[in-house]
C-alpha cells in the first residue's frame, strides 16, 4: 500500500459503487479502521433510513395555477371568427330579405309614407337591432369566460 489512507474521493467511490470499485480500495478498507468508519459514515448518510421527508407546498399548487391559466389563444380566435361569420351571414340574409320585400311591395306597403319617414324608420330599426346584437354578444362572451374557468376548475379536480 503506497499511502496511509484513502482520499475522500476514493472513499465516496467505494461507498457508492461498493464491489465495482478498484480492488485495492477494498483491501485497504478491510485493513484500515479509520477509512472503514469514514466509508460507513458516507453509506449511512445517504441510506434510505436517513432520507428526509420530501418537501410539500402548503397550498394547493394545482388549483392556484389552473385558475391563472389564460384561455388558449387559438381557441379564442377560432370562436371569435365563428361569431363574426355567423353575425355577418345573419346581417346579409336579413338585408337581402328586407331589400326583396321592399322592392316587391313598396307601392303596397309604403305608398302613403314619405321617403323621410321611411328613412328614419329603417335607421331606427337598424340602430335598435345593432344595440341588441352587441348586448347579446357581450353577454355571450362573459358567460363563455365563466364557463371556461368552471371547466378548468372541474378539470383540475378530476385529474
Amino acid at each position: 500500500m503506497n499511502k496511509e489512507h484513502l482520499s475522500d474521493s476514493e472513499l465516496q467511490e467505494y461507498s457508492l459503487n461498493g464491489e465495482n470499485c478498484p480492488p485495492q480500495f477494498n483491501e485497504h478498507i478491510q485493513s484500515c479502521n479509520f477509512c472503514r468508519q469514514k466509508a460507513e459514515l458516507y453509506q449511512l448518510m445517504f441510506s434510505s433510513e436517513m432520507k428526509p421527508e420530501a418537501p410539500i407546498f402548503d397550498f394547493d399548487l394545482t388549483q392556484t395555477v389552473m385558475r391563472q391559466l389564460p384561455v388558449p389563444q387559438s381557441t379564442a380566435l377560432e370562436k371569435s371568427y365563428t361569431i363574426y361569420w355567423v353575425g355577418a351571414s345573419v346581417f346579409l340574409s336579413a338585408g337581402a330579405l328586407i331589400y326583396l320585400i321592399f322592392m316587391t311591395s313598396r307601392g303596397f306597403l309604403f305608398g302613403k309614407i314619405t321617403p323621410m319617414t321611411l328613412g328614419i324608420s329603417i335607421t331606427t330599426f337598424l340602430a335598435i337591432f345593432a344595440v341588441l346584437g352587441i348586448d347579446i354578444f357581450q353577454k355571450h362572451t362573459k358567460q363563455m369566460k365563466v364557463l371556461q374557468s368552471e371547466l378548468q376548475q372541474l378539470g383540475s379536480l378530476a385529474v
Partner: peptide
C-alpha cells in the same frame, strides 16, 4: 390544442421535483 384543463396532470406529476428544487434553493415560504 386547447384542452388546458389537462395541464393539471402535468403539475401533479412534476410538483415533487419542483418542490425539491424550490425548497433547496429558496428559504422564504
Amino acid at each position: 390544442r386547447g384542452e388546458s384543463a389537462l395541464f393539471a396532470a402535468i403539475i401533479k406529476q412534476t410538483q415533487g421535483l419542483v418542490a425539491q428544487i424550490v425548497f433547496k434553493l429558496v428559504k422564504n415560504p
